[in-house]
Simulated assay, not measured.
Amino acid sequence: MSRTRPPRRRTRRALSAVALLAVTAGIVTACGEEDSAAPKASPKAVAPASSGAGQADGSKLRMIDSGGHRVAFHITAGHGPVIVLDSGGGEDSSYWKEMVPRLHADTGATVITYDRAGLGRSEAVPGPWDVEGAVGDLKTGLTELGVTKGVILVSHSQAGEVATYFTKENPEVASGSVLVDANLPPFFTDEEIARLVAASRPEVDAAKKDPTTPANRQLIATAENFTTAHQAYNKVSWPESVPADVIVSEKTPFDGSPEDAQRWRAAAASFVRQAPNRTLVTATGSSHDVPKDRPDFVVERIEQMVSAQG
């Protein structure tokens, strides 16, 4: 992020893979006026990359080896269902630090947050961002922690991809999910992927000139295999046995592009129609950063899912 740019709220940097290709490191995608078809993401969606400095009081840190790199898990011990909070692209586990103690106090449940590879206290993995690697890290961590069932996945933004693959591969572990303005398979049509790649090209090229920052590294890693990865993701099905509560922000990640915002909403509606145990709700007045804009709303939906599955 340029030193001459005005500072942005830290909580505005939560990014999906979509937003990582449209906006990153506080730089709003600047599509040329001649390219009016390219999507524009909300200028409020991002800020600098996470430092991973802080965690909610009361949580215990466990560094778990996963295929040769260490992943940081933060556990607030409780009983009953296990709530796993997974943040969006560019965010580490500290994104949830204000929500963790509240969820623990209200539900008595164990609450787990973790840092995906390269974020927070977790070690980086070289090469393109690999959702299956992220799923493997989560599964390894939960197994090491003795969590084999009753998991409520709360997944914001890019973490929706991790939740989808994890739940598909481990339906016996996941008992429910709250998907918070999350990346969902129906959104990633060939046409939409092409629009996102075209719109993000200037930012990706700029990031490659300074690949040392966490935000730029993640953007480059996500862009490397974005088309192939998301063509595959478009075909992934969520298991019908696992209920999902889908929260969509009112503004979406594409507040500046009505067409793409509508596609985002339509994808969420399409996902919900695929099974009777899915619900769709809108977080009115919220940007893509729903957990920060409407924390009470998100907490309420999580607690309802915990109650229904507990």
Rank of each mutant, 00 (worst) to 15 (best):
M1K: 14
T4A: 14
P6M: 08
R10C: 08
R13K: 12
A14K: 03
A17R: 08
V23Y: 15
A30W: 07
A30K: 12
E33T: 13
D35C: 09
A38G: 02
S42N: 06
K44W: 09
A49N: 07
S51D: 10
S51L: 13
G52D: 03
A53Q: 13
A53D: 10
G54F: 14
S59P: 02
L61G: 04
R62S: 13
D65R: 12
G68L: 08
V71C: 05
V71T: 15
T76S: 14
I83V: 15
G88T: 06
D92Q: 09
M99I: 15
R102S: 03
L103Q: 00
D106E: 15
G108L: 03
A117T: 11
G118Y: 09
G118N: 08
G120R: 09
G120T: 06
R121E: 07
E123K: 06
A124C: 01
V125R: 13
V125C: 02
P126T: 08
G127P: 08
D130L: 10
V135H: 09
D137I: 03
L138A: 07
T140N: 08
E144C: 05
T148Y: 04
G150C: 10
I152K: 04
I152P: 05
L153H: 07
H156G: 04
A159F: 05
G160Y: 00
T164D: 00
F166G: 02
F166W: 00
T167K: 00
N170K: 01
N183M: 13
L184I: 09
L184G: 00
P185E: 01
P186G: 04
F187T: 03
F188K: 05
D190F: 02
E192W: 14
I193C: 07
A194K: 14
V197K: 09
A199Q: 10
V204Y: 10
D205C: 02
A207S: 08
K208N: 02
K209A: 11
T213I: 06
Q218M: 13
Q218Y: 14
L219P: 01
I220M: 01
A223N: 07
E224K: 14
T228W: 11
T228C: 04
H230A: 05
H230S: 03
A232Y: 10
N234K: 06
K235Y: 04
K235T: 06
S237K: 14
W238H: 00
P239I: 01
D245A: 12
S249G: 04
T252P: 02
G256Y: 11
S257M: 03
P258Q: 04
P258A: 07
A268V: 07
A268W: 03
R273S: 14
Q274W: 00
P276N: 04
P276F: 03
R278Y: 01
A283F: 05
T284I: 14
H288D: 07
D289I: 15
D289K: 08
P291R: 02
K292C: 06
R294Q: 15
P295F: 04
D296I: 12
D296P: 13
A308M: 03
Q309P: 03
